[in-house]
Nucleic acid binder design. Structure first.
Lengths: 190, 190
DNA sequence: GAAGATTGAGTGTTCAATCTTT
DNA sequence: AAAGATTGAACACTCAATCTTC
């Protein structure tokens, strides 16, 4: 089964999660050790990255979701997208998107306007100030990321990225939409 | 739930995240594509697992953090641990732990009592009801997990688990403590 | 003074209900 | 009826301040 080549890892045979899960699965062989560890590590890693980046970005008065939203908009054709498209690109619920858009609008980074061709939809456009804000945030976040991952072997990072990509395309519920301007399709509201 | 046999996912050279990040890095070569994608995929995957498991566990009136806490306690010697140990094992802040403990106590799954040997600390013990609750939740969560990961190649899952483990031990701030009963050491409060 | 735990304010998310437009 | 967006209640987390005990 698992070849487990853990080459360059002198001590530290097991970590915190190994112990918790390992103990449990030892007296309950029906459980899948890999799956249980994977879920826990996924949550753990995500929380750690979040925390690290958030703390570094806090000096700029930036929340974690802001770079993500602005980056989506920045790369959209005409720096404009629809609320629905941003929703599908984000992975959060529609209520969260409305919330984020209101705050971005309040700060002056975006403008909201009703789509004339389908008045149910809302078009979101990056303002000039929003454009430079986006550029600034991307740069800052990039620096923080490089610091955070500095101690992890490059090889591991690249393999992780690829494997996570495989996982996401396998389990992702829908998203035939590659994030476009204003295509009114696909289920929403989540 | 969702029969939806969309097994037609053969090609798919690039996904949602590839596009967003790829575009950006194309006009800004200083950025590290792998790192930017990795962070986004980590958040995305974690959120997806969370959502999927939460929805399945909702039928039992269970929040995601409950299995994690009970599992930690279940495997501790004497099914007893200290609040600080649970804190260090969890990855969340001390305020969150207090909050969780209060709700677990309110439901009758655990008991809190002051440590006689060091009255600053709080000892947490699994009750009998809590023990069977823990067993029930582990089983339910295991089933949900197996359903969730069903479409991902086994090989990928195992490699992910190992690589995430490498990442965590590399970036984790401290935790020389392997989760024990009540050792009053290490920084806390976060 | 420092460590362990608790509290309260602020933030952000989900979920269900609602309103408008198609 | 159904889709898109908004709203408000409930919940969980972080952060900083506080209180007790060492």
């Amino acid at each position: 089964v698992s070849p487990v080549v853990i080459h360059s890892r002198p001590a530290k045979e097991t970590d915190r999660i190994d112990e918790i899960v390992g103990f449990w699965c030892h007296e309950n062989p029906a459980l899948d050790v890999t799956l249980k560890c994977l879920t826990m590590r996924l949550r753990s890693a995500s929380r750690l990255v979040d925390r690290a980046l958030r703390q570094e970005l806090a000096s700029l008065d930036v929340e974690m979701w802001e770079p993500e939203m602005l980056l989506s908009l920045r790369q959209a054709p005409g720096m404009q997208s629809s609320a629905g498209a941003l929703l599908r690109a984000s992975g959060v619920t529609s209520g969260a998107i409305t919330n984020r858009l209101s705050r971005l609008e309040g700060s002056g980074w975006i403008r909201r306007q009703v789509d004339p061709s389908d008045r149910r939809q809302v078009l979101v456009t990056l303002t000039d100030a929003g454009r430079s804000r986006a550029d600034q945030l991307i740069a800052a976040k990039n620096l923080s990321e490089q610091r955070f991952y500095a101690d992890v072997p490059r090889e591991t990072l690249e393999r992780l990225e690829r494997d996570l990509r495989t996982l996401l395309t396998a389990v992702e519920p829908d998203s035939p939409t590659p994030l476009a301007g204003g295509e009114p399709d696909g289920p929403a509201h989540r």
